[in-house]
C-alpha cells in the first residue's frame, strides 16, 4: 500500500507530463481522458521496475510516450488537429503571439507520432543525448531529425497563414 501512495504522490506531482502527452496526441477531451487513464495504468504496472536510475520525470516521459505511440483503438479515428481545441493561453499573452502560437501548435499537430515525441522532449529542454536514450536512436540521428522537424514546422506554419 505504501508503494501505491508513493506512486500516486509522484504521479500527482508530475501529472503535467501526462497532460502534455495527451494534448499532443489526442484532440477531444474524451480521448485525452482515455489516454490519461491508460498512461496512468501503464506507469503503475511498470513502476515496480523503476529503480531510480533516471529521474522519475524522464521515466514517466518514456512510459507516457510509449503508451501514446502504441495506443490501440478499435475504431480508427483520424486525428486532425484543429486550432479551435488548442488549450487557452493566459490573458496576458497578446493576440498576435497567440495567433503565432496557434500556427505552431497546429504545425506540431501535423507531425508524425515519432516527430511529436522528439519535439516534446526538445521543448522540455532535454539534451540530444537524453532524447536519444528515450527514443532509442543515436544523438546524431536525433540532431538530424530535429533539423528536419524544424524545417517541416516552418513550412507548416507558412501554410497555416495562407489558409487562415
Amino acid at each position: 500500500m505504501s508503494v501505491e501512495i508513493e506512486f500516486i504522490g509522484l504521479l500527482k506531482e508530475h501529472q503535467k507530463i501526462i497532460y502534455k502527452v495527451c494534448n499532443l496526441y489526442m484532440q477531444s477531451h474524451a480521448d485525452k481522458d482515455d489516454l490519461f487513464q491508460e498512461i496512468t495504468l501503464q506507469a503503475w504496472k511498470a513502476y515496480a521496475n523503476f529503480r531510480g536510475d533516471s529521474k522519475f520525470s524522464t521515466w514517466l516521459y518514456r512510459v507516457a510516450l510509449n503508451t501514446a505511440i502504441t495506443f490501440y483503438r478499435k475504431e480508427k479515428k483520424n486525428i486532425v488537429f484543429n486550432v479551435e481545441t488548442v488549450p487557452e493561453l493566459s490573458e496576458n499573452i497578446i493576440d498576435h503571439v497567440e495567433e503565432k502560437t496557434k500556427a505552431m501548435y497546429s504545425a506540431i499537430g501535423e507531425l508524425s507520432k515519432i516527430d511529436k515525441a522528439i519535439v516534446m522532449l526538445y521543448l522540455e529542454d532535454y539534451t540530444y543525448t537524453q532524447i536519444s536514450e528515450i527514443i532509442g536512436i543515436t544523438p546524431n540521428n536525433i540532431a538530424v531529425k530535429m533539423n528536419r522537424i524544424k524545417i517541416k514546422l516552418k513550412e507548416q506554419t507558412k501554410k497555416y497563414y495562407t489558409t487562415h
Binding site: Y19, Y105, L123
Partner: peptide
Amino acid sequence: ILNQQLATDH
C-alpha cells in the same frame, strides 16, 4: 508558451 499550453488540461 507551448510548454505552458501543453501542460494544461480540462
